[in-house]
């Protein structure tokens, strides 16, 4: 009655892609790239989240409003993280204790 019916083939391919990304992220964890671990893990996780969002959650076929809601919630999470970490990461810059 509404919404696009996602074919079984698309669902399966998305599932396989997700598995590949999973093994990619686990594999990447064992590679010796110290400072790159976190950004790489986050991008792979974001890719998986986008895949699930677009196809399993029908964002791809859905009204643009749901796009805005999902992106807005991540943006607000970003605001919370960015401004909170801005306090912690800029603490040691002045060598005055507690500033």
């Amino acid at each position: 009655m509404s919404g696009h019916v996602v074919s079984v083939r698309t669902n399966i391919t998305i599932f396989v892609a997700l598995l590949i990304l999973l093994f990619a992220t686990v594999g990447a964890a064992y590679l010796p790239l110290e400072s790159l671990h976190l950004p790489l893990a986050l991008t792979i996780a974001a890719a998986k989240a986008v895949l699930i969002g677009l196809f399993f959650m029908h964002l791809y076929y859905r009204h643009h409003l749901t796009w805005i809601v999902s992106v807005a919630s991540l943006l607000w999470l970003g605001i919370l993280l960015a401004l909170t970490l801005s306090d912690y990461l800029s603490r040691g810059w002045l060598d005055i204790p507690g500033k």
Partner: peptide
């Protein structure tokens, strides 16, 4: 974006 103005003297870093 503005909640830090409750914490200016609370030990929050000066730059924040």
């Amino acid at each position: 974006l503005v909640w830090g103005h409750h914490m200016f003297v609370s030990g929050q870093s000066m730059y924040a």
